[in-house]
Computed example of a mutant assay.
Amino acid sequence: MRKLTYFIAVSIDGFIGAPSGDATAFLSFVDEEFFEFLKAEYPETMSTNGRQPLGIDDLENRHFDTIIQGRASYDVALELGVPSPYAHMRQYVVSRSIKESPDPAVEIVSGDVVAKVRELKAEEGELGIYLCGGADLAGQLVDEIDELVIKTYPLVLGSGMPMFRSDFALGEFTLQSVRTFGNGVLVRKYDRKP
C-alpha cells in the first residue's frame, strides 16, 4: 500500500501561513544548504515552473509520483498562469467550485476525497502521494495520513492558517528523524503510530 505524506512548511507556532494562507515569509529560509537538501531528497515537491529555470527539471521523483492539493493551493499556480504546476507527477485538485479542469493533466476531485485517496493508496507502486495542503484538505484527510514531513521555519506568526482544520481527535505519530540546518530550519519526519 502506498503512503499519503503531508509534506508541509510551518512556523514554530504551527501555522502554515498567514490567516489569508500567504506563506511567502518562509521563502527567505530556502538558502543554498536547504535548497540542496530539497533538490537531493524531495525534488518532486518543487513545482515544474520552479524546476525548469533552475535547470533541475530532469531530477527523478524520489518519494512521490502523485500529488493531491486543495483548491486554494492550486489557485496560487493558476494566478501565475500555470494550470499544470506539477507536470512531473499525476495531479489531483480537490474542489467543489472548479467544474472543469483547466489542464488535461490535472484531475478535479469534487466528490468523496477520502475514497479517492484510499483508491490512490491501494494502487501498486513504490512511490507515494504528496499531500500539498492546505489546512482544510489536511483536516479531511487526517486519518489517512501515513507520514508527516514537517519543515519548521524559525518564525512565530502568532496567528494564521493551522496545519489542520478538523474536529478534535488524537492521532499519534512516531518521530523517525530530525535534520537541522544552519539557518534554523528543522525537518522532522514522523510515521503514523500503528
Rank of each mutant, 00 (worst) to 15 (best):
E144T: 10
F7W: 08
F26H: 12
R188M: 14
Q52G: 10
G171T: 14
D57W: 07
P194W: 00
G81K: 06
V82Y: 15
L54K: 10
T152D: 00
N61I: 01
S28G: 13
L131F: 00
M1T: 00
R179W: 08
A25T: 11
S84T: 05
E147G: 07
E36R: 14
L38N: 14
D65Q: 08
R71Y: 09
R2D: 02
A23N: 09
M1I: 00
P83S: 05
Y190W: 14
G133A: 09
T152C: 04
D13H: 06
S101T: 13
T180I: 13
M163W: 01
D143H: 13
Y74Q: 02
S97L: 07
A72P: 00
A40Q: 13
V114L: 01
F64H: 14
E32R: 15
P162I: 11
P162A: 07
S159T: 07
I67F: 07
S11C: 05
F15K: 00
D31M: 05
D13F: 04
G184Y: 07
I150R: 02
Q52H: 05
V113T: 11
L4V: 03
L38R: 12
R118S: 03
G139M: 08
L186Y: 01
G81M: 06
R62L: 14
Y74P: 04
T45C: 09
H63M: 07
P53T: 01
P154M: 15
E79I: 01
K39A: 12
R96Q: 10
V10E: 04
V94A: 12
E32I: 04
S110K: 11
T152K: 13
R96D: 06
L4E: 01
I98V: 15
G17L: 05
